[in-house]
Write a protein that binds this DNA or RNA. Structure first.
Lengths: 169, 169
DNA sequence: CAAAAGTTTCATTTTTTATTGAAGTCTTTG
DNA sequence: CAAAGACTTCAATAAAAAATGAAACTTTTG
């Protein structure tokens, strides 16, 4: 039950120094790959938790809302950063952090970086057609620049598989 | 003079399809490395501009404010993405896009990624001390996890120089 | 099978981040 | 050297993103 609403922040501030460090570390880390603060908080706490925690626990300890906890866990489950474990005699789901850190990077590269590069390369094609219609002088300038950009993006794209392999290894 | 304020949006919507594609491409790209929309707009327009543009031009064509233009250019100058060129008979600064795309990535890696990794590794040290004070069982768990995280972060750190070299080459 | 527990969803509110533009500074020029 | 032009700054405002929590939904249990 969500008695946290009745006695607000009851267990707030119960975080140990270790937990706080972990939480801050992951908030900063996750922000980089576009995940919000609450997601970092949840993972940070689970990362140093000796046992699996229920959503209740996360809400109480972190002082976050029901919605944030539910949505944060959903995101973390989706990227495979967290998994639910069975706890005998307790109906609630309990969560543990998956320690395979490379999952975040992998998800980010595949779901963010790669699509963005692909989209950008498509755009370059469009832009090349559009540049054709310019008068000769401007056209030459535009084409040279587009060529450069394309080259650079392709380079980036070609690097991704290597990067993935390096991170996952 | 900033007559754009007197006749608001005078030249608004004067952007060509090519310019729009370029602007959108760079907005999306820059957002990834934490630069705001207006910065992407400015660079995107300069990227396909056959001649250098004054701040005035950017304000009029993009329909952005004086402040945004000034600050955006400052950011772009700082990362070396844009440079001012001399235009005879015109007192205003004129800007051209630096086409060395790797500069963005380089600035991002050096000013964002690297410091974040270093900070995280420092945190791990703190956390290891804190973990010492836990009771034996929890301590073992915490230490194993911290070891893993540290290992992964060091790996990431070791990759940066390579990444830089690859991007700049 | 109804009541309770656990969880999700989403419209609203709060917080954070980005943009605006008026006031101020610095620079050029007549 | 004063006035105008070019640019910068920053407090106020607007826009975007994240968090909240009540209502709805699902699952379990007596």
């Amino acid at each position: 039950m969500y008695s946290a609403a009745a006695t607000p922040g009851a267990d707030r501030g119960t975080l140990s120094a270790l937990e706080i460090e972990s939480i801050e570390l992951f908030i900063s880390f996750f922000k980089l790959i576009g995940l919000q603060k609450s997601v970092g908080e949840i993972y940070g706490l689970l990362f140093v938790a000796p046992q699996a925690l229920a959503m209740d626990d996360l809400i109480a300890r972190l002082g976050i809302s029901l919605g944030a906890a539910s949505q944060g866990l959903k995101v973390l489950r989706t990227v495979g950063a967290v998994k639910a474990v069975y706890t005998p005699g307790d109906r609630r789901d309990h969560y543990v952090a998956d320690l395979e850190l490379s999952k975040f990077a992998t998800a980010f590269i595949r779901e963010d970086l790669k699509p963005r590069l692909v989209r950008a390369l498509e755009r370059i094609d469009t832009m090349e057609s559009l540049a054709n219609k310019l008068d000769p002088e401007d056209r030459a300038t535009a084409e040279e620049r587009l060529e450069r950009l394309k080259h650079w993006l392709k380079r980036g794209e070609s690097m991704l598989p290597w990067l993935l392999k390096f991170l996952v290894k």
